[in-house]
Every structure is written in C-alpha cells, then in structure tokens.
C-alpha cells in the first residue's frame, strides 16, 4: 500500500509538466497592440489567475491559445504541442467559457448542448444533465429567450460537459448572481481536485484570490508580474481609512505607510507590513470609524507602476 502511494507520488512528480507554455508570444492586430512578448507557463493541476484591466490582452492570450487567432511572433504550447500546428488535437481536451456568450439563437438549450457534445468522442449525456442540474439550467428553453445570466450557464455546461483536462475561463462570473457564482466556484474547485488545470482570467482581484494558486498580472499587453498568490498578498498593500476627532496624521507615520492623506477628518493611507503595528496605533485612540480593505486592482497596478 505504502509502495503504491510512493509510486503514485513518484510518478505524479515525474509526470508534472507544463500544460501551458507561452514563449515571447506577441500579437498585433494590424498596428494596434494585442499582447507583446508574453511568456509564462502553467503546471498541471494549477489554477492560474490572469488578471488585468479591460483591454490588457487577457482575451487575446486565451484566443491565441485556442488558435482562434494566430500569433504575430513567438510560440505557445498546450499539452506540449504547438497550438498553431496541433490545434484540433489540443482542443479535444480543452473547455472554454468565453467572457461574452453567444449561441445559435434559434436552437433549444438541449440541442445546443448535444451539438457541443457531438464534437467529442465521449458519451457526455450524463455529465450534461448533472451539470445542468447543478447550475439550475432549463434545457427545453430556446437560447433566444434566455437572459444573459442563463446564457452564461449554458456556457458553463457546454465548457465542462466533455470533462476537459484544461479549462479556459475568460471573466466567467460576469452576469452570474452571487449564489450561482458560489456554485460555479465550487464546481471549478471540484474539477481542479479531479486534476483539471484551470486558466482563469479576470479583472476582479477578489475572485482570483479566492481560487488561484498563482497569478500573472498583465497590463497594456505586457506581463508585469507573475507570482504566487500568497507572495502577492504578503507584498500587498492594505488600504486603511481611520475617522476620529482631533486626528494627528503623525500618529500613523510608521514604516510601511505610504500615501498618507487627510480628508474631512478621515485619514487614508496604504500600509504594507505587519498589520498589528497599525492596529495597536488605532486601539490607542478613540475612533468613530475604521476600514481596512484590499486595494483595488487599479491601486495594485499603481504600485507596479511606481
């Protein structure tokens, strides 16, 4: 038994390979920039977060990996195979949920899902029903009658029904209500536990933090940083707002404090380091209100820009 486990670990260790390997990938649409010189790799079983503001090149990267568009220069490999040369073969094991979902309007949900399933050599009927049940999708409705959120559910089911080994999620939560978002995240976690590698693009830092092991930050077509989510959080600034009577900004002049500003009796600053130092200072004074929050993505980007 022990040997079996050891073997398993050993072989799993050996078989650990880059599922996605992007090397100096560049894409220009005519003269306008898509992405420039992007390189990164994703290991098997990882959930890789790809964050950046709109228009940064997140979708461009995913579309290149799916060979919906062709690179201007550089190369990309998925499952160790070049995406341009082996597209159809690679896509057999890929599930893709685009940021905006559009399907054949005249079709019924069930027909669309069956059409989608027909491309894979597997009997996906059972999985299809399971997923539709989890996502509470009504299969007999016409696509044209569905709300945006419901179309998104169709997208989720069609992206997962063939049990892919690699999932591309391009801003997947837009249009889903919080309850559905949670179900969706649970679903993704379950898939990941099964060994599925996930490439998760988003502009919402919070959801990336909830789900991902590692993140890449992209801005204006270029990768700014790739790091472990923990490192990112540790390095990260907290945004602190303190409201109190007779506040003296000098009280908070600690190492790690930046951008100290007073506005209408409220003190704003960014803090990086051991948060206890700030908490001690706060507990020493009589405050009316305190918030400590994650900086927005824009604020993090400002940090990377400085």
């Amino acid at each position: 038994m022990l040997k079996k486990i050891a073997n398993h670990i050993f072989f799993k260790g050996v078989s650990l390979m880059s599922v996605i390997e992007v090397t100096n990938l560049t894409k220009y649409y005519g003269k306008s920039r898509g992405i420039v010189d992007v390189s990164f790799s994703e290991e098997e079983g990882e959930i890789f977060g790809f964050i950046g503001p709109n228009g940064a090149g997140k979708s461009t990267t995913i579309r290149l990996l799916l060979s919906l568009i062709h690179p201007t220069s550089g190369s990309a490999k998925v499952f160790g195979k070049d995406v341009v040369a082996h597209g159809p073969e690679i896509r057999r094991d890929i599930g893709y949920l685009p940021s905006d979902v559009f399907y054949y309007e005249g079709m019924k949900v069930i027909d669309l899902l069956k059409y989608s399933a027909s491309f894979y050599d597997c009997d996906c009927t059972q999985r299809m029903h399971e997923l539709s049940e989890i996502m509470e999708l009504e299969m007999n409705r016409r696509i044209s009658d569905l709300s945006y959120g419901n179309k998104k559910k169709v997208g989720i089911v069609q992206g997962l029904l063939h049990s892919p080994k690699l999932l591309f999620l391009d801003e997947p939560t837009a249009g889903l209500d919080p309850l559905m978002q949670r179900k969706f995240f649970d679903l993704i976690r379950a898939e990941n536990a099964r060994g599925v590698t996930v490439f998760f693009s988003s502009h919402i830092l919070g959801e990336v933090q909830r789900l991902c092991n590692r993140v890449g930050i992209i801005r204006e077509g270029k990768i700014v940083e790739i790091s472990d989510i923990r490192t990112l959080q540790q390095n990260n600034y907290k945004k602190v707002n303190v409201t109190a009577d007779g506040l003296n900004p000098a009280t908070f002049d600690l190492p790690g404090v930046t951008n100290l500003q007073t506005e209408n009796g409220t003190l704003h600053f960014f803090f990086k380091g051991d948060i206890n130092a700030v908490l001690q200072k706060i507990s020493a004074i009589q405050v009316t209100d305190v918030t400590i929050e994650e900086p927005t993505l824009e604020e993090i980007f400002m940090h990377y820009y400085e």
Binding site: L66, L68, P88, F102, Y104, E105, S116
Partner: peptide, 17 residues
C-alpha cells in the same frame, strides 16, 4: 456576425474541416 464562431472553432475541428 452572430458571434458563434468562438463556440464552433474552440471545438476539436480544423478550419479546413
């Protein structure tokens, strides 16, 4: 124009097919 190309072409089929 109806934006279904993403759906079709992300399936395991070649453009030629």
């Amino acid at each position: 124009s109806e934006l279904t190309a993403d759906f079709l072409l992300s399936k395991p089929v070649s453009r030629r097919q």
